[in-house]
């Protein structure tokens, strides 16, 4: 029933959804950043599985781009969190809702 590819993709899906749940239920902004990392990681896993399925290097190339993007995102994201913490003295993301529509 389940072949290798499906197993890998299901695992990626589970990890992704766990990240998503974490994103939805957490108010701490650092936890939200970690949730994004979990989801990115799951997406990378899906690419690796696809690369193994087709025997093409493109999947792994994509994973490297995700890696680079995650690094850049974390550095900028942490800098932003630092600013928010300095401004608001809290890490509660709901506090940073002054720009409502």
């Amino acid at each position: 029933m389940m072949n290798t590819t499906m197993e890998g993709l299901v695992l990626a899906g589970i990890l992704f959804v766990l990240g998503l749940i974490s994103m939805l239920i957490r108010r701490n902004i650092i936890f939200m950043l970690i949730s994004v990392e979990i989801m990115l990681n799951a997406a990378g896993l899906a690419f690796i599985v696809a690369a193994a399925r087709w025997g093409q290097p493109e999947g792994q190339v994509m994973f490297m781009f995700i890696l680079a993007m995650a690094a850049a995102e974390v550095s900028v994201g942490l800098a932003l969190i630092l600013q928010i913490y300095h401004q608001l003295k809290t890490l509660d993301s709901d506090e940073a809702s002054k720009m409502r529509g």
Binding site: A71, A72, E73, S75, V76, L78, A79, L80, L82, Q83
Partner: peptide
């Protein structure tokens, strides 16, 4: 990312 992090941080 480096420049942005330096500037923001």
């Amino acid at each position: 990312g480096i420049v942005g992090a330096y500037h923001l941080g």
